[in-house]
Design a protein around this nucleic acid. Sequence first.
DNA 1: GAAATTGTTGAACGATTGATCAACAATGGT
DNA 2: ACCATTGTTGATCAATCGTTCAACAATTTC
Lengths: 193, 193
Amino acid sequence: MARPIQFERDDVLEKAMQAFWDKGYNVTSMSDLVNVTDLRPGSIYAAFDSKEGLFLATLDHYAERSVTKIERALTETVSPLEGIRNFFRKLGRETAGQHANRSCLLVNTVLEMARQNETVQKRLNRHLGTIEALFLHALESAQTKGELSPNKDPKALAAFLMTSIWGLRVLGGTNPAPARTRSVINQLLTLLE
Amino acid sequence: MARPIQFERDDVLEKAMQAFWDKGYNVTSMSDLVNVTDLRPGSIYAAFDSKEGLFLATLDHYAERSVTKIERALTETVSPLEGIRNFFRKLGRETAGQHANRSCLLVNTVLEMARQNETVQKRLNRHLGTIEALFLHALESAQTKGELSPNKDPKALAAFLMTSIWGLRVLGGTNPAPARTRSVINQLLTLLE
DNA sequence: GAAATTGTTGAACGATTGATCAACAATGGT
DNA sequence: ACCATTGTTGATCAATCGTTCAACAATTTC
């Protein structure tokens, strides 16, 4: 062995994530990252290879956090359908809250980088797929429990819900009135009935 | 009078638009813009003040194009509701086509810049509002003609459709299978029934 | 406690960024 | 024909970008 690493990896990832989330990949400079993480360039490069490497690690960190949050929202109630409604109501409140306007790091990245960076695109699709699977599972178990009509297609609905989340994230970027966000959510939730 | 301007403003805007659309605001450099427009920096700054000024002019140009396209799609048929379905089917085909993956300049910009640049945010909201008004008008006239149930709320539906467009644009960024896009569109269109 | 190994530091690298400007070109007015 | 005015050009600006690296620090092994 030799000199041990001095920083907490998760701590650094959390701080870098906030920076990327705030400003996007391109606008966040290494000097920004040095400031927020309190690491020197050399340490960052030793640990993450490059700015892109740090960003990919950050994406993973964000996805982990998100999956946990969504899983919790979906299983807070006994009813899977109510869980989904729960999730969207929370999302609506976030969109209107003080930290509004931040959209979602994954969605931001789809539009900012995915087209130009295959590595990022693949990583994103993996994470988004994981999240979609959570909704699919909830929809299927809703159907099993008889909450969701048997003639509905859970896969199609899961894809639709994902698209709706993305749309709501963009909506958040337009600084909408809370009532507007609620209205949109009410509309899309009627598809589950 | 003095020396006349040598370039076609619309031609320059179209070329700059393609550049910004391809790569986003931040990644598109002045040197990129000099290359695609075939103007020298001085001419660009004389005509548009700054990179941001050129971008704002580009947004206006894009919005103009979009409004025309959407207006045409919505009025291609006698039935306003069929016009809306028309629009979404076209959007679905674009998402899968060769120029797919480009999303929409306005949507890209919402997530890339709006939060950090109030001027851009306001301009965007104006353009998006114009587009939403087109859908609202189509929905209202559908209701007048009896195509849309009187107990539906055109304003709520218009907001929902806008959010759906945005979601579909993000979906496009994930390089989806055409069937997936079609499925999502079918789902969201059922809200008009 | 010396050697080997790995982490940390901060200055520095060349490249590129958005923007400026003096010199020059082209027009209309007189 | 000359002047006033405005457009164009291309070199150039300081600032910042992502990245590297030699010097130094901290740890384990023997």
